[in-house]
Simulated scan of single mutants.
Amino acid sequence: MRIEFFSVKLLILVLLMNFNCQKHQERNAFGEDLQFLKQYITPIVLKQGQQQVIVSSEFQGRVFASTSKGLVGPSYGWFNKDLFINDNALQNISSVGGASRIWFGPDQGENNVFVDVNEITKEVIRAAPKDLDTLPFNIFEKSESAVTLGSKMHIKNLKGFDFYVDIKRSIELLSEADIASNLNISLNSAVDFVAFSAETQMINVGNENWTKAKGIISLWELGCMEPTPNTTAVIPLKGEVNQATVYFTSIDSTRIKIENNTLFYKADAEYLNKIGTPPENTLPYFGSYSPELNLLTVVRFSFTGEQDYVNAVPDNTAPYKGDVINIFNDGTWGDIGPFGPFYELETSSPAKALKVGESLTHVHETYHFEGSKAELNKISVAVFGVNLDVVENALP
């Protein structure tokens, strides 16, 4: 396995802006998270029996958390409560976390959109796009199990190109039949489950066509999850697998391993790091297993095999040779961090040179299964092709 490693200590300080440090704590019940959020926003709760998710129009169609067991069940997903308590959340929407949220890429390189340039001094400061940090979404349609929201947004990149986009985002709870069909699995009453789809459409509503030379933005979906000491991320791979992209900090075989076309990565929120997989090695699903929680998480996403993805590696020289899948692991590195604790399951859309009026859609589905190891193993083998004993023993 060849690992590409990029280490810039200062970068980490600014990259993870506004994630306030919290110590590991007991898992909240879904109802507790819902009551907390009701103090600050008007949450939209989608329901399908005991399966529920919390969505927010104030936070751009973000899914804050989900549950498979109703209000008293555990809450799947992590979000930064300190930002709410300190009254900073609505000015730092991009940094609040949540089980599924939209960003725009890239956040590094010559086409970076997470920058602000002082017009007088020309100083470049790392900052989220203003609309991504402050703009609420409008609710267009709502039913018991689905909601569609959106807004027009303005994004500017480091080259000074202005993107004017119309974003429409649909969050939908997936039925048992949807889950069985999408993942080609069968479920029984021994497994509690919840699954939802986040489908985001971006339309170029500006006056200019997008070009690679001007820098293209992509849709970037990120889901913050609560870690455990033995949480292991699982990424099935294709092709000649000899490469993983490793950001920020060096890692060794105690934290990453590729074996039999499967990448195993420690997602324990104990060491600051991030990895990614390029399109040539990507399959449209990955996930994680937390044995302490009896929890298997699967992410399935839209992927057609296209090769142009924005590159978020600092100082890269190939802006469209980026990753499709990324996993971020929170933690400490020297005196930096932690910022959660959380780990993050991320996917990106391809980079498309949209003409005026053209659109791009990205779908990111999140599935949580809670039950006995034997039952979860059936799902892991069916979806990932990997036995959970292998997952548990892949890393020290």
Rank of each mutant, 00 (worst) to 15 (best):
G215D: 05
K81V: 01
L135P: 08
V241G: 00
Y265G: 05
P43Y: 06
Q35D: 15
V63A: 11
G105D: 02
H154C: 11
I179N: 08
Y265E: 05
N184V: 09
S218M: 02
L388V: 08
S349C: 03
M153S: 12
N393L: 04
C21S: 15
P341L: 07
I93A: 12
F64E: 07
Q60H: 05
V241H: 09
T347L: 02
I44W: 06
A99Q: 14
R27G: 03
I93P: 06
Y285M: 11
F104R: 10
F137A: 11
F193L: 03
M225L: 15
R126L: 01
M225N: 15
H364I: 01
G109P: 06
E306D: 14
I54R: 05
P236N: 11
P129W: 00
C21V: 07
Y247N: 14
G223A: 11
F140R: 14
S151N: 15
I235N: 08
S197P: 04
E199I: 08
D178L: 04
N230P: 04
D107A: 12
N230F: 02
D330Q: 13
L293Y: 13
N112S: 07
T282I: 01
H368G: 09
A213P: 08
N157S: 10
P338M: 04
L16R: 14
K142C: 00
P341D: 04
T148E: 05
N182H: 12
G98A: 10
P136T: 06
N261P: 06
P129E: 07
V363S: 12
S68F: 02
K321L: 09
K257L: 13
L34S: 13
N138H: 11
A312M: 14
E58R: 15
I41W: 01
Y289I: 03
D308C: 00
A269W: 03
S143V: 05
F339G: 07
Y309S: 04
V390N: 08
S57I: 01
M202P: 03
A267M: 06
K214W: 01
E58K: 14
E280A: 07
T317H: 12
F64T: 11
A244D: 00
K321G: 08
L283A: 04
S348R: 13
Q52P: 10
G61L: 03
N377D: 13
G160I: 08
N157V: 08
D166A: 00
L11M: 09
G223V: 05
E119D: 11
E280M: 10
V241P: 02
G322P: 09
V246D: 00
F196Y: 15
L360F: 01
M1E: 06
E110N: 12
K9C: 03
F339E: 04
